[in-house]
């Protein structure tokens, strides 16, 4: 079986600071992989390399067996054209810490936008799909509300529905609950739990250790641009082998 995500030897620098220093990671189809680690360890950067929002300096990033951002022909790498990168991103959904909903569109319009603009779906079909997705995240009643009228938890659920509208094969979550009031975290995690149960492949950067333990198939601990430790949640979270993992967990638990 081809892995859904296969990162090998990923390096990435911003100016002189090397943020990712040789990352190897494999996520199988249907797997929920949670990435944990201290602030600044490069978790967001790694996630953004998966859909080529950041360009990697070295290594190979593959999604569903396909090289991301490049094409390898005759042993030489060719950069993909912008439209080809955009095409690759259709299959990779992303959910941001700060939601990034389109504020000038209603919840339903947010969900309809990419199918309409990118895939050329008819208005009626996009509307129907949006209604179904909003029902799935429990927001049918708020379909005509603008993001500014929604709570943080509701906005993040719309953002998840918006990503799902493109029927992605992989979902990336970058701390989806970190910007939320504590009482709103649960409703977003519930939606993600449902997604995982439906077999969606998910790569989740999170500080919610409970979620990682309960929903995650694997947990990856990152520090200073490298993967320090990875394995089943009960091993990494309950019986960490590395000192750095232990000291991080003792601070967040």
């Amino acid at each position: 079986m081809t892995p859904m995500v296969e990162a090998s030897g990923i390096h990435k620098s911003f100016g002189r600071t090397e943020v990712l220093r040789g990352i190897d990671l494999v996520v199988q189809p249907g797997e929920v992989c949670c990435i944990i680690g201290p602030s600044g360890s490069g978790k967001s950067t790694l996630l953004r390399c998966v859909n080529h929002l950041e360009r990697i300096d070295a290594g190979r990033m593959r999604v569903d067996g396909k090289l991301i951002g490049y094409q390898e022909t005759g042993g030489k790498l060719h950069e993909l054209r912008e439209s080809e990168v955009a095409r690759q991103r259709r299959d990779i959904g992303m959910v941001f810490q700060r939601f990034n909903l389109f504020p000038h569109m209603t919840a339903a319009e947010n969900v309809m936008e990419a199918p309409r603009t990118v895939l050329g779906t008819s208005r009626a079909a996009a509307r129907k799909a949006a209604d179904e997705l909003l029902a799935r995240v429990g927001l049918s009643a708020r379909r005509d509300a603008y993001p500014g009228q929604l709570s943080g938890g509701q906005q993040q659920r719309v953002a998840i529905a918006r990503a799902l509208a493109m029927q992605p094969r992989l979902m990336l979550f970058d701390e989806p609950t970190s910007a939320l009031d504590p009482e709103l975290v649960g409703e977003v995690l519930d939606v993600m739990r449902g997604l995982a149960a439906d077999g969606m492949t998910m790569l989740v950067v999170t500080h919610e250790m409970g979620f990682a333990r309960e929903v995650g198939d694997s947990v990856v601990f990152m520090d200073e641009g490298v993967i320090v430790e990875e394995g089943a949640p009960r091993d990494v979270l309950s019986a960490p082998r590395h000192e750095r993992t232990r000291s991080f967990l003792s601070k967040v638990l």
């Binding site: 603009t117 918006r162 990503a163």
Partner: peptide, 21 residues
Amino acid sequence: RGQAEAAGALGMTRSQALRRI
């Protein structure tokens, strides 16, 4: 900047993101 990024992550090209978002 997150707006253009969110549009890009959905598979929009730069010009689509500019026009629509």
